[in-house]
Write a protein that binds this DNA or RNA. Structure first.
Length: 771
DNA sequence: CTGCGAACCTTTTTT
DNA sequence: AGGTTCGCAG
């Protein structure tokens, strides 16, 4: 875990004197030293006098910061040290967005003296949050003695959670600070339970998530759009279901993901609650929806400055509520606008194709890698033929020494990956499908989290039922009648369900085994017990709950399960140490909440992002990633774009942006395919309309052979022209030792060696070897 | 109450 | 193509 490691490094850091730069006289020479090596030749931008002065000030105040900022290009530097209090950075794809964001934060802290806990940093994904934290900490390590408070740095949801759980006002909206969080999956189970318990009439129960989504969509205006679904003619009880669920979430002291944002907005707006931030920094601003914008506004006071970075051309989540208007609106609110126009990732041929898909803004998209291979557009009979063809192409590529992790296959829908999985399995090509792994993929660990949630939030009946009625580790089979009986018995006594009376009732009514009796006792005592332990003692939980008995010792999974749970507890102990709040119990609750938001990441280093496997990804999941070789499969009308409704230009544009995102994942090589005989009801046997009328010089259309079911087409031999070098590749040199390729131009390969810095080699006289 | 046909929807996904 | 709801016929 990178964050963990970074923190560890800080803690273990010898208290070496922080290298505070000694005050230096202003060195006018710096101006000419300002090197922006990454600026492409066709960009002739230079810093103004003022900006050069600013750079000098940074140099005299904080040399390490200066050294880091010096490496940025002019546009990036400008965005970093502009002192405007409202800045929007329109970042082109692959233009170093995160780098600018991180440097801005470092600049604010080390040059402007803004404390890090006065900077709210908001991202959409955990991955982005971790990357930013890690990069801040890496720089911080050499500069400071203690680790900074970054509790307001994270995803919108985790920051909302942190604000809520430290707010007194939580009580005013009916929650306590031991609230737990349910994920989308648990929410569906929760809702279905309400339907059963209350005898509600709810149609399309298996598409509850879709129905709720539509019901809550602010853009669905008519009742018909909100309530009626599929072939429905009459309203059902969906409105009632949502009403009951809202009440029940409060009585359970549980929030879903949307509630976190909604509640933080209620608490912060109703009560003039101010967290006194100096700055709010937002990543991927184009993805914000209105609730998130409200949250940003609520977090800010009159003196809070804002720095937002985003790329409207990569807005592919409008269907989740983000809106291009939010980007433009912000722009108009007297904010200073910056652009990062230079793409460092892709060859110019790839970028030229991408430009055709650009839907927003007049800003130019500039590259710094000339030429490259033309983008190939090839035709296959069907996806099976393509999979066979790709298998052989991948073998070709890897024979040149390209690692599998540099190859990705992108498609529009998840089920398009199946055929590749089958063929690649046969052909023995290692692959990885980007399935989001959740903690549910580790059943005993998930069961344990249910146990913790049940013990720490005794009103979380979701977790309590799921825990006790779990089919693997639970104690009793779930029957609808049972819970109903329990609830009606409680109603007679006019009390609310909670952990205590549920366990009592179960023992009483169902004459449960001794094992359950013992377990109940330990559950009820856990909250007290955890208060008295230190973080080192957390692994003792295993014996506290007598897990060697509860984890089904007779099952064949037992050894695995027990080991998994033990290493999970070890990790927990480490996390509690790192996230130490006010006491172990409080930290423990923090971690338990974090697990709902963070997914499997907390369990351990089970996923290797750089594993040597071909990546099979949907275009959406590919966002933010880059690969040397990209194959986009199935660019047929009806798939890309999926909706061929010319009445809805907004949807059409979003499809175009999605295609833009897919194309711009490629660094060196891009091939796009469409099928003569596409499967699925959606697509038609036509090449995507996006691919028509594009400049002929950037693409190479594969000959449209009369293809048959049995003869695979393989008319893209360009791939052989690509030599074996790629950026990021590990290489070695007889004199400079091992290094990495930093950049490849038409004539030179520039390598970075440890201790020797950058060296450039002519492609005609290559003295380097792959490693 | 059951059986049949017509009509409708279906994707993408982070937290 | 497959799942669901609804109307209608029996």
């Amino acid at each position: 875990m990178s964050l963990k490691e970074a923190l560890k490094k800080i803690k273990n850091l010898k208290r070496s004197e922080s290298k505070k730069p000694t005050a230096q006289k202003k060195d006018i020479k710096v101006a000419s030293e300002v090197v922006t090596p990454s600026n492409p030749e066709n960009v002739s931008e230079a810093l103004s006098e003022n900006e050069i002065q600013k750079l000098n000030q940074i140099k005299s105040k904080h040399l390490p910061l200066y050294n880091s900022i010096k490496k940025l290009n002019v546009f990036q530097q400008r965005a970093v040290f502009s002192d405007n209090e409202k800045i929007l950075v329109s970042a082109m794809v692959g233009s170093g967005k995160t780098t600018v964001l991180v440097h801005k934060i470092l600049y604010l802290h080390f040059f402007k003296g803004v404390p890090l806990d006065k900077i709210g940093i908001l991202t959409f994904t955990n991955k982005a949050a971790n990357e930013i934290v890690e990069r801040i900490l890496t720089f911080y390590m050499g500069q400071a003695e203690t680790s900074p408070d970054l509790s307001l740095c994270g995803t919108f949801h985790s920051v909302a959670k942190n604000i809520l759980s430290h707010s007194e006002l939580l009580y005013s909206i009916g929650y306590t600070d031991s609230f737990t969080i349910m994920d989308e999956n648990e929410k569906v189970i929760f809702l279905k339970r309400i339907v059963l318990e209350n005898n509600l009439n709810v149609k399309y129960i298996n598409r509850l998530d879709k129905r709720i989504e539509r019901f809550l969509d602010p853009r669905a205006t008519t009742k018909r759009k909100k309530i009626l679904y599929g072939n429905m003619k009459y309203e059902d009880d969906i409105e009632e279901l949502i009403k009951i669920s809202a009440e029940r979430k409060k009585s359970y002291n549980v929030m879903d993901f949307d509630d976190l944002i909604a509640n933080v907005n209620i608490v912060m707006s109703n009560n003039k609650f101010d967290i006194g931030l100096d700055w709010i920094v937002i990543d991927e601003f184009q993805d914000s929806n209105t609730d998130q914008i409200t949250m940003i506004n609520n977090m800010a006071n009159d003196r809070t400055s804002v720095f937002a970075v985003g790329d409207p051309n990569q807005l592919i989540y409008a269907w989740r509520g983000s809106d291009i208007g939010i980007f433009s609106d912000f722009k108009e609110k007297k904010c200073e606008e910056h652009s990062l126009p230079i793409n460092y990732r892709s060859t110019s041929n790839i970028l030229d194709l991408a430009k055709v898909m650009k839907t927003y803004g007049d800003e130019e998209l500039l590259g710094n890698r000339s030429g490259g291979l033309p983008v190939a557009i090839v035709n296959h009979y069907d996806s099976n033929q393509e999979a066979i063809y790709l298998a052989s192409q991948i073998k070709n590529i890897t024979q040149k020494g390209v690692p599998l992790r540099e190859i990705a296959i992108l498609f529009r829908t998840r089920n398009q990956s199946k055929i590749f999985e089958t063929v690649f399995t046969n052909e023995e090509i290692p692959f990885e499908v980007a399935n989001r792994r959740t903690i549910r993929d580790l059943p005993p660990v998930y069961w344990l989290t249910l146990l913790f949630r049940s013990c720490l939030n005794k009103h979380d009946m979701n977790s309590i039922y799921d825990l006790v009625f779990d089919k693997d580790y639970g104690f009793h089979e779930l029957s609808t009648g049972l819970v109903r009986k329990y609830l009606s018995d409680l109603k007679k006594q006019n009390i609310n369900p909670d952990l205590e009376n549920f366990l009592e009732w179960m023992i009483d009514k169902k004459s449960m085994e001794k094992e359950f009796l013992e377990f109940s006792k330990q559950m009820l005592g856990f909250s007290k017990w955890i208060e008295g332990v230190t973080f080192e003692e957390i692994p003792k939980i295993f014996d506290y709950f007598n897990l060697s008995l509860l984890l089904r010792p007779s099952s064949s999974n037992y050894e695995n399960d027990a080991e998994l749970v033990k290493s999970f507890l070890d990790n927990l102990s480490r996390y509690v140490k790192l996230d130490y709040d006010t006491d172990v119990k409080r930290s423990f609750l923090t971690i338990v909440s974090k697990m709902s938001l963070d997914g499997i990441n907390i369990v351990g280093d089970t996923i290797d992002p750089n594993s040597e496997k071909v990546k099979l990804l949907t275009m959406h999941t590919a966002k933010g990633l880059e690969f040397g070789y990209v194959f986009i499969s199935g660019a047929n009308d009806g798939l890309i774009p999926m909706v061929l409704d010319y009445q809805e230009p907004a949807q059409f544009e979003e499809e175009k942006r999605l295609f833009f995102v897919a194309i711009t994942r490629a660094k060196d090589f891009l091939e796009i395919s469409y099928h003569t005989n596409p499967e699925g009801w959606r697509s038609v046997p036509e090449m995507s309309c996006f691919l028509k009328n594009i400049p002929k010089n950037v693409i190479k259309v594969g000959a449209r052979k009369k293809t048959s079911r049995t003869v695979p087409v393989s008319d893209n031999t360009d791939i052989d022209k690509l030599d074996k070098w790629y950026t990021g590749q590990s290489i070695s040199h007889h004199k400079y030792g091992s290094g990495e390729i930093a950049k490849i131009t038409e004539t030179n390969i520039i390598c970075c060696f440890d201790g020797f810095g950058e060296k450039s080699f002519s492609v005609n006289f290559l003295a380097i070897k792959p490693q």
